[in-house]
Design a binder for these strands. Structure first.
Length: 477
RNA sequence: GGCGGCGUAGCCAAGUGGCCAAGGCGGAGGAUUGCAAAUCCUCUAUUCCCCGGUUCAAAUCCGGGCGCCGCCUCCA
């Protein structure tokens, strides 16, 4: 079955295929490096990372580019407030960005271009538009003439006339049309600026993405992504600039993730309602946050709640529990399977995972498939195990790990403490079991409680006691 | 005002014409257990915001309400 992706441009799910055989060129609008990341940024990063991973799983060679906006009004303002330069500011937030992305299990993209490092490409692109009569210069600013691009509005589903009817943007005297947008901005006193044919200045926001996407991926790309809030005007303008300049279709699939809300309102710095990514990571750990972000379909809004994160913790714990139980139940030589030894029912469940992912990356449905496998495995382990059930168990564990690799989850290994600690825990367990035999429950329970406090959980089975760490929780120092 | 979207159990959340409306969290009861944890079994939406309509058949399509959200200005 083929992968189907919802395309904002056509407003329907379409069969995905790249322009060039098995190569996918994908560009996702990244972040502006002026402040801390919040959960909204995390969502976009995790969603597109999952898409990236799934495309690779499907056998595509993916070139994934996501940019850093390192020059704009906010950067300049922030740098001034902190009495530093936009370059220092950028360095600082890039460091933080990668640190947090790693915790979220976000793989490195192929390239992370920065606007300030592509001024030449940006200028070239603007010149091209100027030559075609699509861009016009006015007192050192350069604007895009939207009237010259008949398709303007095709992504957001609004025609220029409709847009003009509801116009509430400040009318800029320099612009011929209120929807004309800046390609190049004349430098004001003390602002970072670069030489250009129109004098000292800096790029407008939208142009950097067009220039960098083309620089790394070519004039036509397969998939372009970002948050839903970027559809208009950012992506609309990217299309206009790029297609006006090249005469070619800029991106075939436009993919937009839903926004994170809090109390049903969009999470945003300006409104003051946001949860920083660092707070969430600290409290719940990267894997729980990632699970939480993927527990809702990527196009739907996600309303932040602590309960949601707590539920995610419990759910993740359930998955790790079964993986550990299977690990305990089988030995090395059971770790093989041939598909024909697996019952059709179990196979169907693992297919359901991939069918769900094929259906516009339906992760909630994919999780359901995983939980059905979890139930099946636990259920098998209620009874004495024979070769066939061990094979099935291994198959299930294998499939869950495989699914986890795509989702960026379930990759931790349990009970992996250094041998000495391992032995110490075993000593405590042995002592405790002696106490239990002598029915000295108070002491036995005390040992269990104390171990729990340091993150080690004991489970008394029929004939043995096993210990686990809390894999779903953030590591405590 | 224009454009896009949402409303499914206590909570989260799939499902867009047809078996008993997935799955998770939580809760209740039972099994197991010294207790706990983990796990299993049963139960927890005769019904999908409301009202009409189309159809043999609708949560799913159409019309009309009500409520909510996003974009139209920087924003993942």
């Amino acid at each position: 079955m083929g992968l189907r992706i919802y395309n904002t441009l056509t407003r329907k799910k379409e069969e995905f295929s790249p322009l060039k055989d098995k190569q996918v060129r994908m560009y996702v609008c990244g972040v502006t490096l002026y402040d801390k990341l919040h959960l909204g940024h995390a969502r976009a990063a995790v969603v597109f990372d999952t898409i990236f991973r799934y495309l690779e799983y499907k056998g595509y060679k993916v070139t994934y580019v996501t940019n850093f906006t390192d020059v704009d009004d906010k950067m300049i303002k922030r740098a001034r407030e902190l009495n530093t330069t936009i370059f220092n500011l950028a360095e600082r937030f890039i460091g933080e960005y990668f640190e947090q992305m790693e915790k979220l299990g976000v793989k490195r993209a192929s390239f992370y271009p920065r606007a300030t490092e592509h001024i030449r490409e940006i200028i070239e692109l603007i010149k091209k538009l100027e030559e075609k009569g699509i861009a016009y210069e006015k007192d050192g600013d350069v604007f895009f003439r939207v009237k010259k691009f008949p398709d303007y509005g095709k992504l957001s589903g609004q025609s220029l006339t409709e847009l003009l009817a509801g116009v509430r943007i400040d009318v800029d005297e320099k612009k011929e049309n209120p929807f004309d947008f800046a390609l190049w901005k004349k430098a004001k006193e003390g602002e970072p600026s670069w030489d250009s044919p129109w004098g000292r200045g800096r790029p407008g926001w939208h142009i950097e993405c067009s220039a960098m996407a083309m620089r790394y991926l070519g004039e036509s790309i397969d998939l372009h992504g970002g948050g839903k809030d970027l559809i208009f005007p950012h992506h609309e303008n990217e299309i206009a600039q790029s297609e006006a300049a090249t005469g070619k279709k800029f991106a075939r699939f436009w993919v937009h993730n839903g926004l994170v809300t809090i109390n049903e309102q969009k999470m945003a710095k300006s409104a003051g309602n946001f949860v920083t990514l660092s707070e969430a990571l600290e409290k719940y750990g990267g894997e729980v946050v990632r699970y939480y972000l993927l527990s809702v379909h990527y196009r739907s809004p996600l309303n932040y709640s602590e309960e949601g994160l707590n539920e995610a913790t419990s759910s993740l714990e359930r998955i790790y529990n079964v993986l550990e139980r299977i690990e305990e139940a089988i030995v090395e030589e059971d770790k093989k399977f041939t598909l024909k030894n697996i019952s059709p029912g179990v196979k169907r469940l693992s297919d359901k995972f991939f069918d769900s992912m094929d259906d516009d990356f339906n992760t909630p449905s994919a999780f359901a498939a995983i939980f059905e496998l979890v139930k099946e495995a636990n259920s098998i382990m209620e009874n004495p195990l024979d070769d066939s059930s061990k094979t099935t168990l291994y198959y299930i564990a294998h499939q869950i790990r495989k699914a986890g690799k795509i989702l960026g989850l379930f990759q931790k290994e349990g009970n992996k403490l250094e041998t000495k600690t391992d032995k110490l825990i075993q000593i405590l367990i042995d002592v405790r079991n002696i106490l239990r035999r002598e029915k000295r429950w108070d002491l036995a329970d005390l040992i269990r409680e104390k171990l729990q406090e340091v993150g080690i959980k004991l489970e008394d089975k029929k004939d043995k006691t096993v210990w686990r760490t809390f894999l779903a929780l953030p590591e405590k120092k």
